[in-house]
Design a protein around this nucleic acid. Structure first.
Lengths: 168, 168
DNA sequence: CCGAAATACTTGAGCGTTCAATTGTATGGC
DNA sequence: GCCATACAATTGAACGCTCAAGTATTTCGG
């Protein structure tokens, strides 16, 4: 391997600040959601994603792909969420490998109850502190990272027929 | 609570991209470090922080503060790292509540061995994809978040007497 | 000084994530 | 049609993190 090119001062400071911020951000969101709704952030995202899908259902694989989650992680999560009645799982007729996950009315209720507090927290720790310009910058930076971290990154766009909308 | 102000399109897209990116970034760093050195990213950060401290030692509380880690988390981590001989813990003479953590030569070796691969990965997924300007933007955005997430945020500056430098 | 409160850290249970292995099902080559 | 391969999802163990509770020590008010 070639000689390591260490981070210069600017990079170092950006990196450290970024790491700390992300670390704390994640903790804050998770804590707020867990406290107010009993859901970890990752589980909230599952419900949110389902709520926007046509018929509020997706295959496990599609859902995992959208959330950039491993199949295993999703499977474990689905087990809990199904046990609590927030989602339902059933095999797709015609391909018995495929499992379809559907958001139940109970799950939708939980999501809708959790959404306002969550959005409030996202605003508090992120958007309220950033200018409109910084939001655009953050988006470009994030997409830049995604181009490396997830080159295949498709982001299927639904017409959002009757999901509850921009709750995340 | 007042009517919820949902995220507008720009915010929504920035937020989603940011979430995915951070999620994948964290996974990538953790995977690389675990694979190449057996250390989770959080543990690597502990060693890195210690390596920069005077005499390569800090109290548990100071270390936790610097890493924005809970005392509990650090305590668990220290137990494992000590068990593997990478750090050493001892009581401070004069205040028997206080525990001092010291990076051992063995711990420093592990850190130095892990550093190049880690920095390479950080470059690959972050700095290589960003312009110099974007790095500055990311830093400001991060510090903006920190002002809310960690208002007390002191960042003690050591003269870096003989830590191995900018390995993180 | 004495007891209450603060400080410093540790512990154990519960939980989500990861990784590797496993099961079951569909498909493509021949 | 058959078998190897790919695909879809699940499982269980290991492990790090969180939270709440606990231990030990020090400080501080009256």
């Amino acid at each position: 391997m070639a000689e390591t090119r260490w981070l210069d001062d600017g990079e170092q400071q950006a990196w450290r600040a970024f790491l700390m911020a992300v670390n704390l951000l994640d903790g804050a969101l998770d804590r707020q959601l867990r406290h107010d709704s009993g859901l970890p952030h990752a589980y909230y995202q599952i419900l949110a994603m389902l709520s926007e899908a046509p018929k509020r259902e997706l295959t496990m694989t599609a859902l995992a792909r959208l959330l950039r989650s491993s199949p295993s992680r999703l499977s474990h999560a689905a087990a809990r969420l199904e046990g609590e009645g927030m989602i339902r799982r059933f095999k797709r007729p015609g391909d018995r490998r495929t499992t379809i996950v559907e958001l139940t009315p109970a799950g939708l209720k939980v999501l809708e109850a959790a959404a306002p507090g969550h959005v409030h927290e996202v605003r508090r720790v992120l958007f309220d502190t950033l200018s409109r310009e910084q939001v655009a910058q953050l988006r470009e930076i994030s997409e830049s990272m995604l181009s490396v971290l997830d080159p295949q990154g498709e982001e299927p766009r639904y017409p959002d027929p009757d999901g509850i909308g921009s709750q995340d």
